[in-house]
Design a protein around this nucleic acid. Sequence first.
DNA 1: TAGACGTAGA
DNA 2: TCTACGTCTA
Lengths: 166, 166
Amino acid sequence: PDFTKPRPTVGNVSGVEVGDEFRYRVELAILGIHRPYQGGIDSHHNDGAFVAISIVASGVYPYELSSSGELIYTGSGGKPADKEGDQKLERGNLALYNCIATKTPVRVIHGFKRGKDSPSTFTYDGLYRVVDFWTKGQSGSMVFKYRLQRIPGQPKLPSHIVKFLR
Amino acid sequence: PDFTKPRPTVGNVSGVEVGDEFRYRVELAILGIHRPYQGGIDSHHNDGAFVAISIVASGVYPYELSSSGELIYTGSGGKPADKEGDQKLERGNLALYNCIATKTPVRVIHGFKRGKDSPSTFTYDGLYRVVDFWTKGQSGSMVFKYRLQRIPGQPKLPSHIVKFLR
DNA sequence: TAGACGTAGA
DNA sequence: TCTACGTCTA
């Protein structure tokens, strides 16, 4: 296999199962689970459409995950904490938006710490569908919000992981 | 050996020889050759003195290397190209300065590209002594300059590497 | 060429 | 808490 440059993949990555845990972002990149080294949204042109294929939620931006499998994810850019301007519907944000109309499944990875001084790890949470999109905040600090719904029929995440999700 | 957290080492690192080449900065960090993932100056408190133990010269900041083994290295911070303020004599800059009085040997690593589209690699150049220090530029864009002299008796760097140094 | 939910050490 | 001569893809 070519580990030097993984192909952008829609859907599950061969050999990677729900609950698989990794220590570094670069591992996700090497395996093609999520290629950006820092970015939260991986995207590519798939069949003529520019879509997102995976996202990482590690708490840098606020997000919400409910036990029903609903995930509210915040768009990229604009640095909400710093209020450095509005987010723009481009790059990853646009790609994730385009997943709604194209019904493209998105891999979701959670980054979290098991304990206060533990290092971050990244856990594969499975495939989600982007079902809704809206903006939040006033002009000058506007961010995008995406509602994702976990696709049914996948293994559940271990409860000890859900417990630690921020 | 403990690969998880290399001890700060003054002088040569066991098993690493002049001319050894590496692909990624993280390799230098793992082996304890140069621990910072991005920073150009590695420092630590050695025997009561805060000193530098290694530097990376990869061309982000200007530097000069002469065939006589003299290296002019630019301090860190202030982002000279952007002129974002004066460099400060703190952190790595201070540590490198303290090497003059303490005569602490400093490991030098060169980062360069073999070809235009080749990836950067990092080559261990051996031990240098910091022999001089001055400032350059007007207030508001002032940077530090360090003159280092290669310690005699070490293997020469391959000429094909010297050729590519920027 | 610029952006990005990284990493580790001071 | 902040910095840092990284590293990749779009």
